[in-house]
């Protein structure tokens, strides 16, 4: 049993960066977006690690990474990601901002996936993040799956176990810190990953060298994707959140504890 695992992963500003929206003629954008260090969307990155893990355990499987992002920025992110896991890159040149519509992004991704030479939908697993640091909750991934005709979909996945008969046991995050356990007969399926359980793989020089054989050619031939902001934005702003903070200092720990105990016990 082997799979074609296609991981859809956008790039986003490093979540540790300070973000500020600005207006542009093309719609809302982030201030200094081109300058902000970017990373692979964190949930999608986990999906990529899971894909790699699964492919290693299923000989003959192959991992594709499909990404729509400004080419130069994508190249920069890939120099780190390409050292971690093996994949074949399919790059689309276009905006990575969260303010574009998931509908259009899904259309571009699905078209790129359909064009993969030798695509076998019966062995296709579409991976991605269930959340995104940019836009939404797995919407793009799910819509891409629909466009590819995949009607077994999972979101918030923390584990995928392949049975000897090719069936999947999948655990999805649901309300209350719990997992929903589902049994699926097998591929094709869409899996929007939460964080899973795999650590971030360390950078490996050999993996990087191997990936470079496809990464640079893919970037060089990345086609522009027709994605634009179509929503009518009335406003885009940082939430008002400034509170007046009472600072308690030079007070004994026991006193702090007493105040906290009272606060915890007190009715809200």
């Amino acid at each position: 049993m082997s799979y074609q695992i296609v991981v859809c992963a956008g790039i986003v500003p490093d979540p540790l960066q300070t973000l500020e929206p600005v207006s542009t003629p093309q719609g809302p954008a982030l201030k200094n977006e081109a300058m902000l260090p970017a990373v692979l969307d964190p949930w999608a990155a986990h999906a990529l690690y899971e894909a790699n893990h699964l492919a290693k355990n299923m000989p003959g499987s192959k991992v594709y990474l499909v990404s729509l992002a400004p080419k130069a920025k994508l190249q920069q992110v890939l120099m780190t990601i390409a050292q971690k896991v093996s994949f074949e890159l399919i790059a689309l040149d276009g905006p990575s901002t969260g303010f574009t519509d998931s509908h259009d992004v899904a259309a571009a991704l699905a078209a790129a996936i359909e064009a993969i030479p030798g695509l076998d939908k019966s062995r296709l697993l579409l991976f991605g993040g269930w959340e995104s640091a940019a836009r939404a909750a797995g919407a793009t991934l799910s819509m891409t799956g629909e466009r590819l005709g995949i009607r077994e979909q999972f979101q918030g996945v923390d584990s995928l176990t392949v049975g000897s008969d090719g069936s999947f046991e999948i655990r999805e995050r649901v309300e209350g810190g719990k997992h929903l356990v589902s049994q699926c007969s097998g591929a094709p399926a869409v899996l929007g990953w939460a964080t899973g359980n795999l650590p971030e793989p360390p950078n490996s020089p050999q993996v990087g060298m191997q990936n470079m054989r496809t990464v640079m050619p893919a970037l060089q031939k990345a086609k522009p994707a027709g994605v634009a902001v179509t929503q009518q934005y009335a406003s885009v702003a940082l939430p008002k959140q400034q509170r007046s903070t009472r600072i308690v200092r030079d007070v004994a720990a026991a006193e702090v504890a007493r105040e906290l105990a009272q606060w915890i016990r007190g009715a809200h």
Partner: peptide, 24 residues
């Protein structure tokens, strides 16, 4: 924490929690 918390206690959490757990 400033501007985001309502109260900021400047204290060693190990010490505070020790006492807080006793009280709770």
């Amino acid at each position: 924490a400033r501007g985001k918390a309502d109260v900021l206690y400047v204290a060693d959490a190990f010490e505070v929690m020790e006492e807080l757990n006793r009280l709770l």
